[in-house]
Design a protein around this nucleic acid. Structure first.
Length: 428
RNA sequence: GGAGAGGUGGCUGAGUGGCUUAAAGCGACGGUUUGCUAAACCGUUGUAGGGACUAAAUCCCUACCCCGGGUUCGAAUCCCGGCCUCUCCGCCA
């Protein structure tokens, strides 16, 4: 959520930013109009309350002296009625304004390229060499079928399409990967590991910005109005809601593994083969709460932490700076990390690392007190470190051999009980 | 799920309708004293919104004792609803 004072002082800047994100800017003028009404109503209402407080004291004085106060009481009753109607009016104005404010996207950072869609993103880095095969590399779903580690026919039997059933060493590889990632981020990168709830309430979902805009993309339990987490960002960022940090306690680095649940409404027919786009997947998330002046530096560090996973796994990737049109609702700046898939012959997004500045912290009311005792909103950041299915795709496809077996990268040996190759018994 | 108890400032904890501007203590911060530390003593101590002006400082007002309603001239206090915590019982991995 943007600061109403900021909107009041920079309406044109914000309208431009919204246009660059391809969202509807019409509500800015409406918000400003509501704000004027709101403030004059507050003023009127507080004048009345002040008057009432004065009268009540006078009643008490008279009663103490044993005098009759019925005149003042009658008069003050009327003030009470006026206050009530004034408060109702104010409540209406505030909820209208708030509803509009919650739907205003964040303003992109100054160095974010202005653009329409993913074609206008800018590649800022590439890492690793293109793997050369002396045979035609298979896509992961073929490898998964041959090795009997991925069974999409049976997962659709129990859940439907877009759900993954891993078997044998495929299941073990999944567990190995997120354990490896968590250990890397906690041991080498200074993150504290969390294991949060997978169901969260509506307030948490609104705090990080998934609601109200993306409700149709979330799985919701109707009886209790709880949502299955679409990313660990939601529970983790919301942990410190309504808290004030001491400057001594910042920055805060959290990492968490969770499954992620997404209905992917509106993306039917896209990436339907294999496990490129699924309704449930595993992910290790990185979340930071930092001082505002450090947040852009922290974003670079966070991207580096996520990259490290791919470097250690020896997988080719590139980093893309997203343009205004391709960026998410809440982000001010965003890098995507894309891993190379030899079987699909394209890059796949495995991480999206964003600085939200104070957009989320305003919604969830997370602040800090600096050395001078001044209070301000923290900046929040997050990024995947990494999302599992596409990492698995790249790993299987990159390390496949002619007979379909998979060579495990050595950093994973300890997590695979020393197993170095996934192969089908028939190949032995 | 049943029965009971509770939710007050950074923390502990008083407070049964106006003498509360929320007591007291602890902590934190500042000062005095001190070779240093400690102790003692003195002082300070929340958040948000609105206004005085354009900004900062300052001042004034309003709100906030879990949340939302209600009663009342007046609510931390009384009433109703909700959420959460604790204890016991039941059920359960």
């Amino acid at each position: 959520m943007l600061d109403i004072n900021f909107i009041r002082n920079n309406p044109d800047k914000i309208k431009q930013a919204i246009a660059n994100k391809h969202e509807n800017a019409a509500s800015i003028d409406e918000i400003l109009e509501l704000d004027v009404q709101r403030r004059s109503t507050i003023y009127a209402c507080e004048q009345l309350k002040s008057k009432r407080n004065e009268r009540s004291k006078a009643v008490n004085e008279l009663k103490k002296k044993g005098q009759d106060a019925s005149g003042i009481i009658e008069e003050t009753k009327k003030i009470g009625d006026e206050i009530k109607s004034s408060e109702e009016k104010l409540k209406g104005l505030e909820s209208q304004m708030n509803n509009l404010l919650l739907r205003i996207p964040n303003v992109p950072s100054a160095d974010t390229p202005v653009g329409k869609d993913e074609k206008d993103n800018v590649v800022v880095k590439t890492w690793g060499n293109r793997k050369v095969f002396d045979f035609t590399p298979l896509p992961h779903w073929e490898l998964g079928r041959i090795l009997d580690i991925l069974d999409l026919e049976r997962s659709s039997k129990i859940s439907g399409s877009g759900f993954i059933l891993l078997k044998g060493l495929g299941a073990k590889l999944e567990r190995a990967l997120f354990s490896f990632m968590l250990d890397l981020h906690t041991r080498e990168h200074g993150y504290t590991e969390l294991f949060p709830p997978f169901l969260v309430n509506r307030t948490a979902m609104t705090g990080t910005g998934q609601l109200p805009k993306l409700e149709e993309d979330m799985y919701r339990t109707t009886v209790d109005d709880l949502f299955l987490v679409p990313t660990a960002e939601v529970p983790v960022t919301n942990i410190h809601r309504d808290e004030i940090f001491s400057y001594k306690d910042l920055p805060v680095y959290y990492t968490a593994y969770t499954p992620c649940f997404r209905r992917e409404a509106g993306s039917y027919g896209k990436d339907t083969r294999g496990i490129i786009r699924v309704h449930q997947f595993n992910k290790v998330e990185l979340v930071k709460l930092v001082r505002p002046e450090t947040s852009y530096h922290e974003l670079e560090l966070l991207v580096g932490n996520a990259e490290k996973v791919l470097q250690l796994l020896g997988l080719e990737y590139r980093i893309v700076k997203l343009c205004t049109g391709d960026m998410s609702f809440a982000a001010a700046k965003c890098y995507d990390i894309e891993v190379w898939s030899p079987g699909l012959d394209k890059f796949l997004e495995v991480s999206s690392c964003s600085n939200f500045e104070d957009f989320q912290s305003r919604r969830i009311n997370v602040r800090f007190r600096d050395e001078d005792g001044k209070i301000g909103f923290v900046h929040t950041l997050n990024g995947s470190g990494l999302a599992l299915p596409r990492t698995v795709i790249a790993l299987l496809e990159t390390y496949q051999q002619k007979d379909g077996s998979i060579v495990i990268p050595d950093v994973l040996y300890p997590y695979m009980s020393g197993i170095k190759v996934i192969d089908k018994k028939e190949f032995k």
